[in-house]
Computed example of a mutant assay.
Amino acid sequence: MRIAVLMTNTDESDFSNSWPKDGEKFPAMMRRVRPEWEYVVYSVKDGVFPEVLTGIEGVLITGSPHSVNSGDAWVERLFGLIREIYAAGIPMFGACFGHQAIAKALGGDVAANPKGWVFGLVEKRFADGRSLPLYASHSEQVTKMPKGAEVIASGPDCDVAGFVMGRGVMTTQYHPEMEPAFIAALVEHLADELPSDVTERARASLVKEADMQAMAERIALFIEGQSA
C-alpha cells in the first residue's frame, strides 16, 4: 500500500533537530507491523502538499506543537485537503494535531483544555473496555465532534481521545509514534516552560512504556479496512 504521511510538526529547535523528524517516526512505527508498505512524506507545514490523491491508499497526519486554530495559510490548506481525502474515501488517521485538524476540518471544534496540560504516559480507554498505554503531550483538544463522528476512546482529562467516522477516519489525541527515550527527553526539555506539577506527573508516569506496536497494528487494520 502507498501511504501519504502529512508532516505538520513546526518545531525546528535544536532539541527537535537532534531527533528523527515525524516524517521518519511515523513510517518507522508502521514498519513494525507493515514493513512492505510504501511511505511518502509531504511536509505540509512547509507548503509541500500532494498534487493529486491518485495512488494514495492511506493517509497519516502527524502531531505538532502548532495550533489548529492559528489561521495560518498552510493549516487552512490542510483543512481543505482533509475534506478532499474524506470525500475520496481514502482511509485517514490523525494523531494529536492530526486528530484535531481532522475534527476541525470536518465541522468540529478545538479549544484549550480547561484542566491544562496532559503530558507523559496515559491510559487510552476504549469504549469496548480495553485500554492501551500511549504518550501524551497536549494542552488543546477536541471540544465538539464533527457530524457523524463516534468517540471510541477517552483518557485522563480528555473526553475525546479518539474518534472514527465510518471507514474513512480514525484518530487519537495521543502520540503513538513517540519512543520512550524521546518522551523522557521531551519532559526534561520542557521542564522550564511548564508548571512543575505537570513535569513531575509526567516524569512519574514514565516508569511504564507505551505500546507502540499495538497501536500501529490498530492503525494498519483500519487502513486495510479491517476491524481494529
Rank of each mutant, 00 (worst) to 15 (best):
K104D: 01
D157Q: 13
V122D: 06
T62L: 06
K208E: 14
S70R: 06
I223V: 14
R167K: 14
I82K: 04
T10C: 06
K124V: 15
E24R: 10
V160N: 05
M145K: 01
R83Y: 07
G166V: 01
M92S: 04
Q226I: 00
I56P: 10
V48Q: 12
G80H: 09
V151N: 04
E200L: 08
W74A: 07
I219Y: 01
R31A: 06
D11C: 04
F97G: 00
V187P: 03
V164P: 00
G116T: 12
E209G: 02
M212I: 07
E179I: 14
P133M: 12
G129M: 10
E177Y: 10
V48F: 07
F93W: 03
L78H: 03
G108V: 08
A202E: 00
A216V: 07
V118E: 09
G89E: 03
A228T: 09
P65T: 07
E179R: 14
P50R: 13
V52Q: 15
A214W: 03
Y42L: 07
E51S: 11
R31T: 08
H66I: 00
R125P: 00
A191D: 04
S131G: 09
S131R: 14
L81Q: 02
A210S: 14
S196V: 10
T171H: 11
P146G: 11
S154W: 11
C96K: 02
A103G: 13
R218Y: 02
A28T: 09
R125I: 11
L78C: 06
G148C: 11
E177N: 08
T8S: 11
A228P: 05
M170V: 01
Q141V: 01
E38H: 10
I3A: 05
L132W: 01
A220Y: 03
E193C: 10
A111K: 15
L60R: 02
M165Q: 07
P114R: 14
G225K: 12
C96F: 06
L221K: 12
G155A: 15
L190Y: 12
G55D: 15
E179G: 05
T8E: 02
T54D: 15
S131Q: 10
N17W: 07
M178N: 08
E140Y: 11
L78A: 03
L206S: 08
F222W: 04
L134C: 07
E188R: 12
L121W: 04
V118T: 11
S227N: 09
G63K: 05
D159Y: 05
I82N: 06
L194Q: 02
G120T: 12
V5M: 04
M145P: 01
R32H: 04
K25M: 14
I85L: 15
R2H: 15
G71T: 07
I152D: 02
E224P: 07
S205M: 13
L194Y: 14
L106P: 05
T171P: 06
P50H: 12
S43W: 03
V52C: 08
V75M: 14
G23K: 04
N113F: 13
K25W: 01
T54P: 02
E38Q: 13
I56G: 09
D211N: 15
G155Q: 06
A101C: 02
A210G: 15
I223C: 00
I102F: 08
L221D: 06
S139V: 15
V118N: 01
E150P: 00
P114Q: 14
R167F: 00
T171S: 05
P176E: 05
A204T: 05
V169T: 04
S205E: 07
L186C: 07
A185I: 10
V75A: 08
A105I: 09
S137Y: 13
W117G: 09
L81S: 08
V118L: 12
